[in-house]
């Protein structure tokens, strides 16, 4: 078996005529925390959905644990997903269930454990994210940072081999952000899992990940360890790391010539 738990080989994907990915190659070694970075709309979240088998690639393949995801039948995909935990952008907690039931949900669905054991496991997971005291609250009573930590407890409920994070820092204050950063790193090392973090939060990310992929224009524009990328002279990386407004990533969305556009408006 290879040492890469997830491999993306020459992957292309698009909605209709819009091509989002044009031959992406990535490798995610076991036990590492890997970040996928890129501007908004560069298809980072879509990559996670492709890994989870919620979308089918138009070309190429995604291999999880040596198996090609889109060639699995429904049962096969579900078996692969049992090895994955995913933290959605805003947590995606089930609003009609309490915090406790949210964390217990995957256990109740996939195991036949007695309720007393589920209770112990749920409290363990909640303790790991520091929110054991919130177990009787409803999701509507939680702050943004708290609900993301609960969602993290739910994502690791079945001790997954792969944990995926979709924009884990979006909309959080610096303290909550620091808490999440610590959790991602610690959980990864304690569980011996592999973490894939999709984000555009450059400074937070560079502080704790092992490897970074930059996605732009549907391909991997740059890759390397945080230190390598900081030193990189590639214009794209430079722009992203330093947050310049214009550069290889244009400020403007594809549009016809500005002057012609205005002229047409006056004529019509």
């Amino acid at each position: 078996m290879t040492d890469n738990i997830v491999e993306i080989n020459n992957l292309s994907f698009g909605y209709g005529h819009r091509h989002l990915h044009k031959g992406v190659n990535m490798k995610f070694p076991r036990g590492k925390v890997v970040a996928i970075m890129g501007g908004s709309g560069s298809g980072k979240t879509t990559l996670l959905r492709l890994i989870g088998g919620q979308l089918r690639p138009t070309h190429g393949e995604v291999k999880v644990d040596g198996k090609v995801v889109h060639k699995q039948d429904r049962a096969g995909i579900y078996a692969l997903r049992r090895k994955m935990g995913m933290l959605f952008q805003f947590g995606a907690l089930f609003t009609d269930l309490s915090v406790y039931d949210n964390v217990a949900f995957p256990m109740r669905e996939h195991t036949n454990l007695p309720e007393s054991m589920i209770r112990d496991l749920v409290l363990m997971k909640l303790n790991a994210v520091g929110l054991r005291g919130a177990c009787n609250l409803m999701p509507s009573e939680l702050s943004g940072g708290m609900s993301r930590r609960i969602a993290l407890a739910r994502a690791i409920a079945l001790d997954p081999a792969i944990i995926m994070y979709d924009e884990p820092f979006a909309g959080l204050d610096p303290i909550s952000m620091g808490v999440i950063v610590n959790l991602i790193r610690n959980l990864n090392d304690v569980l011996g899992a592999t973490s894939i973090v999709v984000t555009h939060d450059i400074h937070e990310t560079f502080s704790f990940v092992d490897y970074v992929y930059f996605v732009a224009d549907g391909v991997v524009a740059a890759e390397g360890t945080p230190d390598e990328l900081r030193a990189s002279k590639l214009p794209f990386v430079h722009q992203f790391v330093h947050g310049d407004v214009d550069g290889p990533v244009p400020f403007h969305y594809n549009a016809p010539d500005y002057r012609q556009d205005l002229m047409r408006a006056t004529r019509a």
Partner: peptide, 19 residues
Amino acid sequence: EIGLMKTTEQLSAMEMMAV
């Protein structure tokens, strides 16, 4: 309810949990 569950990605989350 269903629309909101979809909007807040609860249905997607469920699918990712193999449910």
